[in-house]
Amino acid sequence: MINSTTFLIVLRFILLVLVQVLVFNKLNFFGYINPLVYILFLYWYPIKQNRTTFILLCFFLGLCVDIFSDTLAINAAATVTIAYLRPTIMRFV
């Protein structure tokens, strides 16, 4: 049986990818700037969960956005980097 935390993480993952791809990739502020709301997944992920799973989820999150946005793994590299540096960033914040 899947617990509520895992269900919430999977739901956030799917919804953020869909919202990013279907809504926010179509918006262009000043002709160039796209808002990146899928980054909220990095913020909302529970701190006490397994770090390896978190980094893998972030890679797949970035890869999904890259596939739909037709970018060459830029988002995947950025999300993995932020996921790796998250403990350091959270200590300063």
Score class of each variant (00 low, 15 high):
residue 93 V to L: 15
residue 17 V to M: 01
residue 9 I to F: 00
residue 54 F to T: 00
residue 86 R to L: 12
residue 46 P to C: 03
residue 35 P to K: 11
residue 4 S to N: 04
residue 42 L to P: 07
residue 50 N to Q: 06
residue 29 F to D: 02
residue 28 N to G: 10
residue 61 L to E: 07
residue 46 P to S: 05
residue 22 L to F: 14
residue 4 S to A: 04
residue 34 N to W: 06
residue 7 F to V: 02
residue 36 L to C: 08
residue 39 I to M: 14
residue 14 I to C: 09
residue 26 K to T: 12
residue 61 L to Y: 02
residue 14 I to D: 02
residue 54 F to P: 00
residue 86 R to E: 05
residue 88 T to V: 10
residue 14 I to A: 12
residue 35 P to F: 14
residue 78 A to V: 14
residue 25 N to S: 15
residue 67 I to H: 02
residue 7 F to L: 08
residue 16 L to I: 06
residue 62 G to T: 08
residue 25 N to E: 15
residue 85 L to Q: 13
residue 83 A to Y: 04
residue 55 I to F: 07
residue 38 Y to V: 05
residue 31 G to K: 15
residue 8 L to D: 03
residue 7 F to K: 04
residue 75 N to I: 03
residue 45 Y to I: 09
residue 92 F to A: 14
residue 41 F to I: 07
residue 39 I to C: 05
residue 5 T to V: 07
residue 43 Y to G: 07
residue 57 L to S: 11
residue 75 N to S: 12
residue 77 A to Q: 05
residue 72 L to D: 14
residue 86 R to A: 09
residue 42 L to N: 06
residue 16 L to N: 02
residue 12 R to I: 00
residue 38 Y to E: 08
residue 26 K to S: 15
residue 4 S to T: 05
residue 48 K to F: 13
residue 43 Y to L: 15
residue 85 L to T: 09
residue 19 V to E: 01
residue 89 I to Q: 09
residue 13 F to I: 02
residue 45 Y to K: 03
residue 9 I to D: 02
residue 38 Y to H: 13
residue 49 Q to H: 11
residue 20 Q to H: 11
residue 12 R to L: 09
residue 73 A to T: 13
residue 67 I to F: 14
residue 71 T to W: 04
residue 50 N to W: 08
residue 92 F to S: 15
residue 29 F to G: 02
residue 12 R to W: 01
residue 77 A to H: 02
residue 80 V to D: 06
residue 7 F to Y: 03
residue 51 R to Y: 12
residue 21 V to P: 05
residue 90 M to L: 15
residue 30 F to L: 14
residue 71 T to F: 06
residue 72 L to T: 13
residue 41 F to R: 07
residue 60 F to M: 12
residue 17 V to I: 14
residue 26 K to H: 14
